[in-house]
């Protein structure tokens, strides 16, 4: 079974946490802040992105601040996964901790903005319907897959603490 097709939103290298979640707006509620996600590089994104869409990007996605709102905003907008050639360490952990798959994928150039794609994280497959091309995604470390499968770090910890109690 594959998921329903998603629209791909394509971005370049070095998408930083300030364009994902501007510091000057960090007092806003998470929902309001999310409406400004990536507006400095693509004003249309936060207005038009639909739940289930995916973000594809180049190198060093999420560089900058530790602010979790960078990943929270993508989650609130319903982004299903971020695929990038590489991720900044803290953003990567934040995304995984929130249950947002951050997937290292070398061939993001094979996905253009607006392409229709299907992602199957567990089977590590990406299908680009617009180009009729299919890709195998790299496996995720068991420690990371475990957090994603639990829906994030807090639910995982909740279970662990219950078990220990």
């Amino acid at each position: 079974m594959t998921d329903r097709p998603s629209r791909a939103w394509a971005f370049g290298d070095n998408i930083d946490t300030d364009v994902l979640a501007p510091g000057r707006l960090m007092k806003l509620s998470p929902e309001e802040l999310a409406r400004h996600c990536l507006e400095a590089v693509n004003p249309e994104f936060a207005q038009s992105v639909r739940p289930g869409d995916i973000v594809v990007a180049g190198r060093n996605f999420g560089l900058g601040s530790s602010r979790e709102q960078a990943a929270v905003s993508l989650r609130i907008l319903g982004v299903k996964a971020v695929l990038a050639k590489s991720f900044a360490r803290i953003f990567f952990r934040n995304a995984i901790n929130l249950g947002l798959p951050a997937i290292v994928f070398d061939e993001t150039d094979a996905v253009s903005d607006g392409d229709e794609v299907e992602l199957d994280r567990r089977r590590q497959r990406l299908l680009n319907r617009s180009r009729n091309a299919s890709f195998e995604l790299p496996p995720q470390a068991p420690a990371i897959a475990q957090i994603l499968d639990a829906g994030g770090l807090v639910p995982l910890l909740e279970r662990r603490l219950k078990r220990e109690a």
């Binding site: 530790s66 979790e68 803290i90 934040n94 901790n97 929130l98 994030g152 910890l157 603490l161």
Partner: peptide, 13 residues
């Protein structure tokens, strides 16, 4: 090293 809020909350706990 730096960590985001959920990591830090888990560390605090």
């Amino acid at each position: 090293a730096g960590f985001g809020a959920t990591d830090m909350a888990a560390i605090a706990a």
